[in-house]
Write a protein that binds this DNA or RNA. Structure first.
Lengths: 236, 236
DNA sequence: CGGACGGTTGAGAGTTCTCAAGAGAAGTGG
DNA sequence: CCACTTCTCTTGAGAACTCTCAACCGTCCG
């Protein structure tokens, strides 16, 4: 795994791909300039770990590009993925001592990193930023709670169908019920860890969806949703 | 179900049981006075519904006493409880159009209610309050994610043992590994809805824990944890 | 006393997991 | 460029767990 270089931002935030979608969206030029001063851009290789479960929470970040996972382990060592983080999402645990989960890049990723203490101070001094962060956290809590329904009340087929639809949605490739094709940022094992299933069950469900014409699997890491409306029905 | 009276706060916040634990904790006297002006105290009977899934989010509140549940339904009508809310917790969805879950009092409860729009305005004008709310929301998100591990990766025994321990913890009755006895605010069906199990499985697990000496069940709505350390082991 | 309700218990079915083997793709070194 | 290794994914068979359906028990209340 190569050690990627860490450098101060060379581009201004104003050219940032997520300038208007991330929590920085409401800041004025002066504020953005200040934030620029404490942030740095960092590239992560696929599979690279950025934070560790239980470790001191040193960093927070905005995701510029790529997909990352948040995960935790049960006492007997089984992994459960707690969430996936996409471009413009906020990453890390501000105002917290330790990170309650590990964070790993699933694809190559670009993130805009801050020392947590720097960020905490900046946020407390800029209520507009803190407000954005609050709205985002509330939205994330809503999403997480919806995921609980999936984990607690859905069967394997419903879980896999829901997963594929949400993935298309969050990757921004979802057309209005036309077929969509995209690269899966997760391995079968990781999908299982998101859904609270085993790898075999995920594999069987995907095969079944393929055999029944709902999806195609052109390669291991690619999927095509042939009939999103059908998947919606299967998702329950 | 009696219609409980709604009245402006007669007691000042300074005598409020949760004054130092709720999100109001950091406000000074002047600010508290203002907040007092837009809030009212309300008593809920056990079983009374305060918010409805999908409805406009009209109210937010602080819980003063009692336990409430947040719940949502899967497409085929099965209920999943998304969270339990205890004294000093914040309730409702600020800065949101609709409530993503229904809220129902499980026990008789006292809450301190605000019109959401009043509260939103007040929060935006008082960053210290908004900061408290952010910290609470972040903590709630952490707790919710931990619950995901339970739903996704635990078996029935681990779920029930974890549930009993968390309940004792949040009710504040948990001694350091001595036996504890408390009233369950939930029916068997509701416990099942929290844990993503059926009522029969919950019942069987409780019976088994009783037969093996880990707990006692003096009545339907009471439980005694005879050996919390043993439960910790069973919780995994 | 009889009904309603919540909870418990039992038996069998169904789904998912576990264990095991094999196929396919990707990477390594000669 | 091809054997070889390794890793991921798929498939199968049987076990285990939880669910479903059904009956029953105890308590509360009219």
């Amino acid at each position: 795994m190569p050690d990627m270089p860490i450098s101060r931002l060379t581009t201004t935030c104003s050219t940032c791909a997520i300038r208007n979608r991330a929590i920085c969206a409401d800041l004025n030029d002066a504020e953005i300039g200040l934030l620029n001063g404490i942030g740095r851009r960092r590239t992560l290789a696929a599979g690279e770990q950025v934070m560790w479960e239980g470790d001191e929470a040193v960093l927070v970040a905005n995701v510029i590009e790529g997909v990352l996972k948040l995960s935790s382990h049960s006492a007997d060592g089984k992994e459960q993925i707690l969430g996936l983080v996409y471009p413009s999402d906020f990453l890390g645990r501000p105002f917290g001592e330790t990170s309650p989960y590990g964070v790993e890049a699933l694809t190559e990723a670009h993130i805009c990193v801050f020392e947590r203490t720097d960020f905490d101070r900046f946020a407390r001094e800029h209520p507009r930023l803190e407000h954005k962060l609050l709205e985002r956290t509330l939205a994330e809590l809503d999403r997480t709670r919806r995921w609980m329904v999936l984990l607690g009340r859905m069967n394997a087929e419903q879980k896999v169908a829901s997963f594929l639809l949400e993935m298309a949605e969050r990757l921004g490739v979802r057309a209005i019920d036309g077929p969509v094709r995209f690269a899966l940022p997760l391995s079968r094992q990781q999908i299982a860890d998101v859904l609270g299933l085993t790898i075999e069950t995920v594999s069987r469900q995907l095969t079944r969806l393929r055999n029944e014409g709902a999806i195609e699997l052109p390669s291991r890491r690619e999927v095509m949703l042939r009939d999103p409306a059908d998947l919606e029905v299967r998702a329950g």
